[in-house]
Write a protein that binds this DNA or RNA. Structure first.
Lengths: 189, 189
DNA sequence: ACCTGAACACCGTTCAAGT
DNA sequence: ACCTGAACACCGTTCAAGT
């Protein structure tokens, strides 16, 4: 099936953003397994080797996808009560998982140590401090919170949570209850 | 590099277990990326197509690996206090992640709906019931507990948790505290 | 029933070359 | 600086054939 191939993109200046846009689009309508250097290059009307300048290699391409996913996290609003900010964090991560079910699993495959990964992490730490959590447990609690949020979203995305969606909502509600209670308890002490 | 190839395995009867043993061994000393139908077949001195009878396809091979991982979970001992059983569950899952850092990530890629996956799930539900948790929240709490255990172990395995191991221990300790407290609270009500 | 052999349609990446 | 073309060493899987 040799596609018509959208040739002649006029300007030959490719950008990293264009490459990642094409990758995301490809992943969205043909699945993560269909993401290959060659397929992405095809979509851009370019040779596979042209991508290497912008993403390094295949792993770099996937890391770029993770970066994009994290960028979809809503901004933290420090003016709100910390309880609302915590809930916004949860629904934000859940919506990303629902938008990109199989891409989301990449978040567990790579450390995601990019600067973009620091934004949600800092947001969580800031809301914990505002809640009054003592400094020595801010980091472990933030890590636990991140893990729970990502873990629940990933479980929903990969189909580990079967059954009606109310049953899945119940797990999120339980997590929220657990975390709010624990934070209040640590803040008091 | 054409290896000598261990030919003549005498009996030509291959088994699913042998296939998975070879896969696990390959993954262990050359990484998950090195796991291919062809490489596994080579290790068994057999043609790639011979594997299809036992594992279906590549995805089936990986699902078999997940099954093997879950089988490493220690048996639940219903005679112990539920708090100890909960801790055993946590350390069990953590040890698997440390033994097979990159294999562990497979647990988030596939639903793992095999019968072997039901064993740890049932163990957790049984300890929650013994703790006195009301029936309607046994399932959501079990799911949350599984997710936290697997999420923490995966985070450690993929390098998302950096820093000294005491910092990682602190996250596990916090999770344990949260869960024990919550279970007691739900059991009372 | 169980395994082989050849073939098909793909991969990621290197390297040298073009402009 | 940015991109191409050809080549290398791989993939998973189908299909027909062997025993």
């Amino acid at each position: 099936m040799k596609t018509p191939a959208q040739r002649g993109r006029g300007t030959r200046g490719l950008t990293r953003d264009e490459v990642l846009d094409a990758t995301l689009a490809l992943a969205e309508d043909r699945g993560l397994d269909a993401v290959s250097m060659r397929a992405v290059a095809d979509r851009l009307g370019v040779t596979p080797m042209a991508l290497y300048r912008y993403v390094g290699d295949k792993q770099g391409l996937l890391d770029g996808l993770v970066e994009r996913l994290l960028r979809e996290m809503p901004d933290d609003d420090p003016a709100l009560p910390w309880q609302d900010r915590l809930r916004a964090f949860g629904t934000g991560i859940r919506e990303i998982a629902r938008r990109h079910p199989d891409l989301f699993l990449l978040l567990f495959m790579r450390p995601s140590v990019t600067p973009e990964a620091r934004r949600p992490r800092n947001a969580v730490q800031s809301m914990l401090r505002d809640a009054g959590v003592p400094e020595e447990i801010v980091q472990p609690l933030q890590r636990l919170l991140d893990t729970i949020g990502m873990g629940l979203a990933a479980s929903e995305a990969n189909g580990r949570f079967t059954g009606p969606s109310e049953e899945i909502d119940a797990v999120y509600a339980l997590a929220e209850d657990l975390l709010l209670t624990a934070i209040e308890r640590y803040a008091r002490s």
